[in-house]
Amino acid sequence: MGERPLIEDITQNTSTRFVSFTAGNHRFELALMKAEYFKNQTMVINLHKNRQALLDLENIKRDGHLEHIFQLSALEAEELRNYLPDLL
């Protein structure tokens, strides 16, 4: 089998935090991964919905951003938005 060309191949140490919490009537299970590669952002993985995004304090406040990325209702996104600043 021929060798496949890679565009990028980087190995870095990461810090991953697993957080589960309930907000209102919703349960969230997240993995928050920090690495130098992500600069000042955190890779937030919604384990229930199998969706992820690079987030920071600025883009979590953007209207419709969390709703779109994590496929959340406006209420769910607002509940998550209230927790994320302390987690990032």
Rank of each mutant, 00 (worst) to 15 (best):
L57C: 01
R81D: 08
E79Y: 13
I10S: 06
A31V: 01
M1K: 02
R27Q: 14
R81E: 10
S73R: 04
R17E: 08
E36W: 11
R17P: 00
L80R: 08
G64Q: 09
T16L: 09
Q71L: 10
L30H: 02
T16S: 15
L80V: 03
L57I: 10
A74N: 10
F21Q: 07
V19C: 01
N13C: 01
E8F: 07
L54V: 03
N46R: 12
Y37P: 00
G64F: 02
L55H: 03
P85G: 09
L54C: 02
K34A: 04
I69A: 03
G24K: 09
Q71V: 07
N82E: 13
E36Q: 13
N25F: 13
L75S: 15
T42W: 03
L6Y: 11
L32C: 03
L66S: 07
S15L: 11
Q12L: 09
A31W: 00
A74C: 01
A74M: 05
N59F: 01
L30N: 01
S20W: 08
T16W: 03
P5G: 07
V19S: 04
Q52M: 12
N50K: 14
N50C: 06
E79D: 15
H48T: 09
Y37H: 10
N46D: 15
N59L: 04
R17M: 02
L32D: 03
S15I: 05
L80M: 12
G24L: 09
L75V: 14
T22D: 14
L32F: 05
Y37R: 12
D56E: 03
T14H: 06
N13D: 13
Y37D: 02
F28E: 05
F18P: 00
N25E: 12
F18E: 05
I69Y: 00
T11A: 01
A74S: 14
K49L: 10
I45W: 03
N82C: 04
V19E: 13
K61E: 11
R51Q: 10
M43N: 04
E29T: 13
T22I: 11
F21N: 06
N40P: 00
